[in-house]
Nucleic acid binder design. Structure first.
Lengths: 130, 130
DNA sequence: CGCTGTTACTTTACATTGCAAAGTTAGCGA
DNA sequence: TCGCTAACTTTGCAATGTAAAGTAACAGCG
């Protein structure tokens, strides 16, 4: 079996992506935050529901998490005597989202840098499948 | 209160990002898959542990999920009479990862297209904070 | 040779999280 | 007045992420 080269110490944590903010990274919330980022005037609860294809309960939960994390401001209002909820990114939310996107760009860069489309090298002798 | 424009029907699902493969999207697994994508010859369990800053138990769990999903091939071998585990992306894993990264690029594009760095517009009258 | 520590993982226990069904409040129309 | 609908919130529970604990085997030492 060929001798595998030990990962260099300075690579430790290279793919940990610590800056990937979990509050934003969850798929449903990523969609919510991205759609809010592209609508500075905010979006209604129903608009978010449609844009992100979420159920009422799910959207409500995620908005609560985003609000508690300080990324989203929730406004209550009325239209035709009916209650309406408007959601908007806070300044902090925008900032954290930009930071998150920068890390996401790193992931994309990493992903495309290692010739991922090329076939894997055959493992050398001495290995058997698990 | 100003009249909010209803989201156009053709925008439904615009930010659902259905192509964001959850098996890959989980932060720890994203790191694992990205690091494997940049090492076609595969990586040892310990190398992955260091590169991704994961505990043994956590890494093992995620590798199991990736293997069960068909994205990763696990090879067992020995070095100096000690067991070693080599992990490698499968062809399917590479394909799905490329598809995933394409969607990630969409997210990044969306995120940067809506003037996210510009301050939010003040909400019109009639709204009060939740 | 027995014992202890270490290595390279796997398994387990449990806390956290994501989801949608169920619930709530209030308005509208018959 | 009643039934239905809208716009959410809350709840129950299944799924998931994490690291501590466990396992098997090797190395070194006395």
């Amino acid at each position: 079996m060929s001798k595998n080269k030990k990962v260099r110490l300075d690579s430790a944590g290279r793919f940990a992506y610590d800056g990937l903010d979990r509050v934003i990274h969850e798929k449903a919330r990523l969609g919510i935050v991205t759609s809010l980022a592209t609508h500075p005037q905010g979006l209604l609860f129903n608009d978010l529901k449609e844009l992100c294809s979420l159920t009422d309960g799910n959207l409500s939960r995620h908005l609560q998490i985003l609000q508690e994390a300080g990324l989203v401001q929730i406004w209550k209002g009325f239209k035709d005597n009916r209650p309406q909820t408007l959601c908007q990114l806070t300044a902090q939310g925008q900032q954290r989202f930009l930071e998150y996107v920068a890390v996401l760009e790193n992931v994309v860069t990493d992903a495309l840098s290692g010739a991922p489309a090329s076939p894997n090298k055959r493992v050398s002798e001495g290995w058997s499948p698990a």
